[in-house]
């Protein structure tokens, strides 16, 4: 099992993007997917960084793919999607309409926002040219095991959501703009003010969701820190780590150390908990996505959704 750095979902300025990929080039991950997934309006602000990042990542020996948008509705967005293929890199599709631009037999990757829930869909994508699939984060372990098994048979590498706020929904409406009483078309790029997204609490102050433009994510950081062994047993090929502000390089090092057995599950979980967000891994085998299997337990109280740092 190895590590993939997924595309950054948030709106970062060009300098932040540059610094981020310089640091990623130096960490022990096998591959990197980059590109704009959430909002086509953001791309002009940072697209010039893409070739620079690709060059340094390839030079560092990483495999690199370029990501499509998740929700493609405008003509301009269809054109942008078509142009991705001209970069000469594998495309990671996050919407099936991106396949329109991928000739039959050209290898492509499939991102976690495409609905790959079962072997029928995986088989169809494989015959169409898919060579790597990151499964939707809401899949339970039993489904992951079936799909990883089929992936082995078909020669398709199967990834799961390894670390990061979980992408839960995408909309035609921009919630960042709505929070500023603006419409999507006159958003004035307010999402740039929140480089890790904007926290949403319940009115009882339970930590709940994260708004990122038209995207809604979990506020918890989903982490497979405690699930490496079952995922290995299921035949999963890679964990996807989702970019965030803060010491992302150290986080990648932490997962690499966990995969190589140098740190324990709980030691990694403690490192991650110190980033301040609650942890979750419940989609895999918990009662709900938000739950956490470990000793860092969540306790819901009327005053809030508190995390108790209690060791085993």
């Amino acid at each position: 099992m190895d590590l993939t750095v997924g595309p950054n979902f948030f709106f970062w300025d060009a300098a932040t993007v540059r610094g981020f990929y310089q640091s990623v080039a130096a960490v022990p991950v096998a591959r990197v997917v980059l590109g704009e997934v959430v909002c086509s309006k953001r791309l002009p602000f940072w697209q010039d960084e893409i070739p620079l990042a690709v060059e340094s990542l390839l030079a560092a020996g990483k495999a690199v793919a370029i990501s499509s948008l998740a929700l493609i509705t405008l003509k301009r967005e269809r054109k942008q999607t078509a142009e991705l293929l001209q970069l000469g890199l594998p495309v990671e599709i996050n919407d099936l309409s991106a396949l329109h631009n991928v000739p039959q037999g050209t290898p492509f990757w499939v991102g976690p926002l495409v609905n790959v829930y079962n072997e029928g869909t995986l088989r169809w994508l494989a015959q169409r040219g898919a060579v790597r699939v990151c499964l939707p984060p809401e899949l339970p372990l039993a489904s992951v095991a079936v799909l990883a098994g089929i992936g082995r048979e078909l020669g398709v590498a199967v990834e799961v959501w390894g670390h990061g706020c979980v992408p839960l929904a995408i909309s035609g409406r921009c919630y960042h703009a709505r929070l500023h009483d603006r419409s999507k078309d006159s958003c004035q790029f307010v999402c740039a003010e929140d480089p890790d997204g904007r926290d949403v609490q319940t009115i009882d102050q339970q930590k709940f969701l994260t708004v990122n433009g038209v995207q809604t994510l979990s506020q918890s950081t989903a982490s497979m820190a405690r699930q490496i062994e079952p995922l290995r047993a299921a035949g999963v090929d890679a964990l996807r780590l989702s970019p965030q502000i803060g010491n992302f390089a150290a986080l990648c090092e932490g997962y690499a150390a966990r995969l190589s057995g140098k740190v324990s599950a709980d030691a990694l979980a403690l490192q991650l908990a110190n980033h301040g967000r609650p942890l979750s891994d419940g989609f895999l085998n918990g009662a709900a996505g938000v739950t956490w299997s470990g000793s860092l337990v969540f306790r819901q109280t009327l005053s809030g959704f508190e995390q108790e740092k209690r060791l085993l």
Binding site: N115, Y117, S171, A288, G289
Partner: peptide, 21 residues
């Protein structure tokens, strides 16, 4: 639906049950 249909896991995030599954 406020979100793009078939692409929303908000419900399963807190209940374990989703439209898709």
């Amino acid at each position: 639906c406020v979100m793009a249909e078939g692409r929303c896991s908000l419900s399963s995030y807190i209940t374990g049950q989703s439209p898709n599954m």
